[in-house]
Write a protein that binds this DNA or RNA. Sequence first.
DNA 1: ACATATTTTTAGATTTGTCTAAATTTATTT
DNA 2: AAATAAATTTAGACAAATCTAAAAATATGT
Lengths: 220, 220
Amino acid sequence: MSNTSHSEENYLKAIFHLGSEGTQAVSTNAIARNIKTQPSSVTDMMQRLSEKGLVNYRKYKGVSLTDLGRDTALSIIRKHRLWEVFLVEKLHFSWDEVHDVAEQLEHIKSEKLVDLLDEHLGFPQYDPHGDSIPDKDGNYPSRDKQLLSQLPENAQGLCIGVKDSSASFLKYLDRNKISLGDKIKLLEREDFDNSLLVLVGERKLRLSQQIAANLYLKLL
Amino acid sequence: MSNTSHSEENYLKAIFHLGSEGTQAVSTNAIARNIKTQPSSVTDMMQRLSEKGLVNYRKYKGVSLTDLGRDTALSIIRKHRLWEVFLVEKLHFSWDEVHDVAEQLEHIKSEKLVDLLDEHLGFPQYDPHGDSIPDKDGNYPSRDKQLLSQLPENAQGLCIGVKDSSASFLKYLDRNKISLGDKIKLLEREDFDNSLLVLVGERKLRLSQQIAANLYLKLL
DNA sequence: ACATATTTTTAGATTTGTCTAAATTTATTT
DNA sequence: AAATAAATTTAGACAAATCTAAAAATATGT
């Protein structure tokens, strides 16, 4: 197990993220867009990953992960998210700075390292963006969460995650003092632009549709 | 700065280690032996590193590091040793297990990561094998140390480092309960095989020449 | 100092991962 | 259902990093 290259692992991760919505096969172009490469490179790689038994690939029909491919992808994601926790909790990175470094750290190969890191961090369940962390066996809790943009008026919940974890979005949240764990109540929706008037803790704020479509809440 | 590949960094590190004795140029074969590759691969790489201004290379005459190459090598070594401290102090790896993982971690590129890690660890001066850790600017303390094998009879010192940090040697030391910080006194040298009778703390032990030639002491 | 041995370099091939441009397949439109 | 558009694959090239085998340069021994 686990003689996958840096590059192969990135493809597996992309397929996992793109495919986790439906059980549909993932298209070549979607992968190319996701990892910023050319479609022809994706085709090449899919043929190699198929040889290795990591994906199911049918020409022109897209790919899906095999069980082995899924396990491999989950182990990369586990590592990525554990490192993110480490960077924030132990080294005091801010949540918008961790992604690029974690992208490198996730490829370090040492089972012992990952398991001891997990223990060192107290077996965290969620990373700094609210995404759940798979355990050694690839199991991870799925919470029921809803996008703020999809809530009915007067509903309220706790902010438990972000959909977009780009630095620019996270910095916006910092500037507006919105953090994981905050209580958010939807006061009213503006029909014209779908912007929302919300209560974050005690503060009234107006949030655009784009912002609201990237905040996950757990309903109260 | 610092668009060096994983592989280039390994060559720079090897040249640094091989060259730090004298100021002599390092031979192609020595590098090949050190990083377990073919001499022809070394030649190729030397030409590439020379292009990049990282080494001074003259055909058939060996190589030495330029200032830039030296800085780069020192930054890799700094990272390697800081990660080793992290693995031992925070994750409780034993000192014979850290090398392979640190070989991977040393290539992670993030200045912020290294500096925060350094701070998190309390700006350690030495790694778990007693080697000194360069600071941000590449400065590192050089202590005067001597190999146990070179001591005169009845001299004593504190064990402050190992020359060979292979797992097999370190495990031998563990089995014989010899650790950094122990006080060691040389009682007598056996002429026939150069083995030594020593006092480690309160315990009398006989050590072979090979062992004694890999233990560094600070004289008392 | 000449012959031999050793070291180093060159030449040519291979693998991985990428690209561009052209060809092919699938999807969409009218 | 034919024509057009979009997506996908193939073909061929390239760079990095490695290898083997042969050639060239340097070192060594008597």
